[in-house]
Design a protein around this nucleic acid. Structure first.
Length: 359
DNA sequence: CACTCGTGGAG
DNA sequence: TCTCCAAGAGT
């Protein structure tokens, strides 16, 4: 019953229905209706499956939906996205986070059009290694859009299967074990199976307060039997995150234009728009180095949390004359401000704390 | 393997 | 307030 790194014992089957059959029966009655899913009996559009899977990486369904609608409205097909400037993709993506996904998204669209005739590869091997497509996403697209009998192991699958089989190995070492357990379950309806596992993990077998009473696998779940659902999946302890400090400078002209720049291609918020700001250091810095001479006033601070560290930015603002040239490497935004730019949430917060009081 | 890479919502 | 974390990928 317990699954460890050295021993495998598959659950004995007391019930007349196999696990996959029970899950698909449940899915047929409880599948969530989502914009990227095909209507019953129809084949899902690979482009929409791909787009949704990239957006859903480490991101909740509720957050993704409005972005998905905006993208599919602006780019109905992969050709439309491939033809667009990358910067437009970044602007549409602004606020969604993990911006390398947006850079890879456009690169992948270009690759599909220029090297694959506008069609996505229909196998895991063909999909793997395209920009932004890893093991999970390749499996998801291959099974959901192309009906390949392969697995897509994500956080939901890790949680569900580690509970059912009481996988004692901690993540990430448990991943290959879980992948094998999942592969052994994949039925003919591989795409529905993948999505049913995700729906189960998202709505029933949740991290906290799992609704075991509604679960189609309640009878064969080892953790449920032992009452230890919350102990799975086992995870390695994460290291503590250290606060970093910095300063940001909002230079505003009378017409509303704000001094902005573009961040380096790679790294944090790569390729996105920023306002001038200092280095972010563990020790607060008090020597200010504003981008230009002006009467800078401290107008508040912004707290923001990245995945691997929290950040506190002291925000300074100044009004500058219409004839002031933008110092290198910065530029002036449009008179309405940088709202239309590829501005990540951090810098939207910065602009928010020093808005000009309206008359 | 271990680290980087966003954001907002839930408890 | 604080912790966790959501359909991971790249290096």
């Amino acid at each position: 019953m317990f699954i460890t790194n050295t021993s495998f014992v598959v659950n004995e089957r007391r019930s007349p229905l196999s696990l996959d059959k029970k899950l698909l029966d449940w899915y047929d009655h409880n599948a969530r209706v989502l914009p990227w899913r095909a209507a019953v009996g129809e084949r899902a559009d690979p482009y929409r499956v791909w787009l949704s899977e990239i957006m859903l990486q480490q991101t909740g369904v509720k957050t993704v939906i409005p972005y998905f609608e905006a993208f599919t409205t602006r780019f109905p097909t992969v050709e439309d996205m491939a033809r667009a400037e990358r910067d437009e993709v970044l602007r549409l993506w602004a606020g969604l986070g993990y911006y390398s996904r947006a850079r890879n998204l456009h690169a992948c669209a270009v690759e599909v059009v220029e090297r694959h005739g506008g069609r996505f590869p229909d196998t895991v091997e063909g999909l793997l290694g395209m920009p932004g497509i890893g093991a999970y996403t390749a499996g998801a697209i291959a099974s959901i859009a192309f009906g390949r009998r392969v697995v897509a192991v994500d956080g939901n699958v890790e949680r569900v299967l580690s509970r059912v089989y009481q996988v004692e190995e901690a993540l990430p070492k448990a991943r290959p074990i879980i992948t094998r357990l999942a592969q052994d379950l994949v039925p003919e309806r591989a795409g529905d199976f993948a999505q049913s596992l995700m729906d189960l993990g998202a709505t029933i077998c949740t991290p906290k307060n799992p609704a075991c009473g509604l679960c189609p696998w309640v009878a064969e779940c080892g953790a449920r039997k032992a009452g230890t659902m919350l102990d799975y999946p086992k995870k390695l302890a994460k290291k503590a995150k250290q606060m970093r400090y910095g300063a940001a400078f909002v230079a505003r002209r009378a017409d509303g234009a704000v001094l902005i720049g573009t961040r380096p291609e790679k790294g944090l918020l790569g390729g996105m728009v920023e306002v001038p700001n200092s280095a972010w250091t563990v020790e607060p810095v008090d020597a200010l180095e504003p981008p230009l001479q002006a009467e800078w006033r401290h107008c508040g601070s912004v707290d923001h949390v990245f995945t691997h560290f929290p950040l506190r930015l002291a925000v300074y603002a100044a009004e500058v004359g219409m004839k002031v040239k933008a110092p290198e490497p910065y530029r002036w935004s449009s008179p309405n401000g940088p709202e239309g730019e590829a501005l990540p949430t951090l810098f939207r917060k910065v602009l928010g704390v020093c808005k000009v009081p309206s008359p």
